[in-house]
Design a protein around this nucleic acid. Structure first.
Lengths: 189, 189
DNA sequence: GTGCAATGTCAAACATATTAAACACCAGCC
DNA sequence: GGCTGGTGTTTAATATGTTTGACATTGCAC
């Protein structure tokens, strides 16, 4: 926890443009309680902190995990043509959110021509991968398990497991995938 | 927070095979404190709960975010019908990877009927959100910026920014989205 | 200027959490 | 049987958090 409870509470409260008394009223505590907490003169009990946060509302989990506001991003929208093709043979990968700084999630639109095969890549990166088929059918092998996924079906596995995608059908297959980017790894695209 | 503080603490303590007295000793509190907390007969102060967790060690953020371990999922594959509808009015959300333990990414297939509107939700959760439209068109507003996204286009923004999805067209719209569940909480056991 | 409503702070009374020291229980062992 | 060392629980005293009711300050209206 990088921030004090006092600081966090004040940030939250001001973010919602509430006075100590307003928040106190919603939370069912007195303004003094909030004043003292924000001055770090007391360490509130869980029950009272929860009451206070219920007035926002915000969960204890959110309260302790939220981070300071990030720098503003110019535009959150991304055109189709803005997505660079970064794939290989028979496979086209389009990155959604190209140029985003501090990206944590890599979402890809993956297009597999008939016969396309990623090959059995071995583990590599730590993390998790999730995805769903939006068009066509794709055979997915994870570790020792293999299955053909149709549109609407999905997968979720640890990236450390060896995995392989193959389009065995005659139709182009398309899936949307998302994976975690390790915090400090250099941009791989 | 689905679990009581009392339950969470007991789980954490037993996971680490510590007795109340052992943990108390490491944490610099008395065994009574821990006993009473676990019986839910007191609501500990943040400071004392922090002291207790330091004896594990575990951060407050982890403490409030960790999930109950679910039974291990044998298969990484997910059927279409396995995805539970967890959405609201006019909007259907299908979770991909239902039942995955230690999930870090939440991928959703979001189906918006014509006229569907998520409403202008304010900030709430920490994290990042990315997505792409696979069918139809959807109007997305992030903070102060608004745009209609067509199939193939995407978005990427911080979850703390207020955002709203609306289907203004006559066709059903569908997007695949992914968001981080808890950015910093590492699996501690 | 006065009045008024809002803000955040403070001190003493009160409520609650924490401690210290006991308690009861159980398992193993002599 | 009695002892020992471990467990979690309870109780009275103490420490800490919370409320009550005040205070000082600010900004706005009259």
């Amino acid at each position: 926890m990088s921030l004090e409870v006092s600081t966090r509470l004040k940030l939250v409260r001001e973010k919602h443009a509430l006075s100590q008394r307003e928040l106190a009223k919603r939370a069912g505590v007195t303004n003094s309680t909030i004043s003292l907490i924000e001055q770090n003169r007391v360490s509130p009990s869980i029950s009272s902190l929860k009451k206070v946060l219920d007035g926002v509302p915000m969960s204890l989990a959110e309260f302790f995990t939220f981070d300071i506001a990030e720098p503003v991003r110019p535009s959150p929208f991304f055109d189709k043509e803005q997505m660079p093709d970064i794939g290989g043979e028979g496979v086209k990968l389009f990155l959604i959110g190209h140029g985003v700084q501090n990206r944590h999630i890599t979402m890809l639109r993956e297009v597999y021509e008939p016969g396309a095969d990623t090959g059995a890549e071995m583990l590599s990166h730590v993390g998790q991968e999730v995805g769903t088929v939006v068009r066509g059918e794709i055979e997915l092998t994870v570790d020792e398990q293999t299955r053909v996924l149709k549109a609407g079906e999905g997968y979720y596995f640890e990236s450390t497991l060896p995995h392989r995608f193959r389009n065995l059908g005659k139709e182009t297959a398309e899936i949307i995938s998302a994976s975690l980017v390790s915090p400090n790894a250099p941009p791989s695209f």
